[in-house]
Design a protein around this nucleic acid. Structure first.
Lengths: 143, 143
DNA sequence: GATAATCGTCAGAGAATCTTACCATTCCGG
DNA sequence: CCGGAATGGTAAGATTCTCTGACGATTATC
């Protein structure tokens, strides 16, 4: 790779951040969260989300999403409740332990972004974020 | 995810690009290349690289790298040759078919970057690439 | 030369993912 | 309002990717 493409450069930085967050969570007493579970859990809130939507957003099949949610549920991070508007569906929402781990993950997320800002300067960091957010319009079908 | 972090935004764009490249390769007659194989193959050249270095750069264990190189070798994309400077080692280098697929991947890579540039404008695209390249200094241990 | 480090492989296991098929519920056109 | 199509989710099974631990061969170090 003489000149890594823009996309590969994104991957390098992303994976660095992801790994540091998972390691940090392990140190914080959440050692049972895997990377794949984290990608799912990051998309949940207390509001609840259907499995189908979750799977679309996370870009996996609903079977895969269900598999990971099963594990998160068994570990006490999420819970499934009936969807009042549709008896076929259930809403997946963060349990208290899930909120804890999400708060903890955000701590490291902010720390990493602070490092990046120190390295790039505030203005370039803001531009970087803005450009990435704009790219989402043409790269994220589930925006 | 109310406000996706910078890292997650990187992942979204990266995955979009990666998927489009793999799909494009499949249409181009390279339907046997998987995503994981592609991440390995992207780092190779005709010069040859040791398995250990390849594994470090791709951020996988050398067993995993070996597993993927076995498949790439069986499919004719790469070949292993003795390392003249060390009898323990072998160099993994692109075979002719590997060079073909890499050229093809670069076509789509450039196409995607052109789309991004149309969306952001030339200046912001250049800034994005430069910032990502700078971040690599603090995010990529194998730079 | 003896010892330690490095390069790669083998064996075995676990995690994540997919495809195909299916049931239950809801939506919709006639 | 009824019957077919669509949607939400699960089940079963296979495949792919990845890791840990152990090991033989070669090289580097003292």
């Amino acid at each position: 790779m003489p000149q890594p493409s823009t996309a590969v450069l994104m991957f390098v930085a992303y994976r660095h951040a992801e790994k540091r967050i998972v390691d940090f969570l392990a140190e914080s007493g959440f050692g049972d969260i895997t990377l794949a579970q984290g990608r799912i859990a990051a998309r949940l809130s207390e509001d609840g989300l259907r499995l189908t939507e979750l799977a679309e957003q996370a870009q996996v099949t609903k079977q895969t999403a269900g598999f990971l949610v099963d594990q998160l549920e068994a570990a006490g991070y999420v819970e499934r409740v009936p969807d009042p508007s549709d008896a076929r569906a259930r809403l997946i929402r963060l349990a208290p332990r899930g909120r804890q781990v999400q708060r903890r993950a955000r701590v490291m997320e902010r720390r990493i972004e602070a490092e990046w800002e120190r390295h790039l300067g505030a203005e370039r960091m803001a531009d970087l974020h803005a450009s990435l957010a704009d790219l989402r319009e043409i790269t994220d079908p589930y925006r």
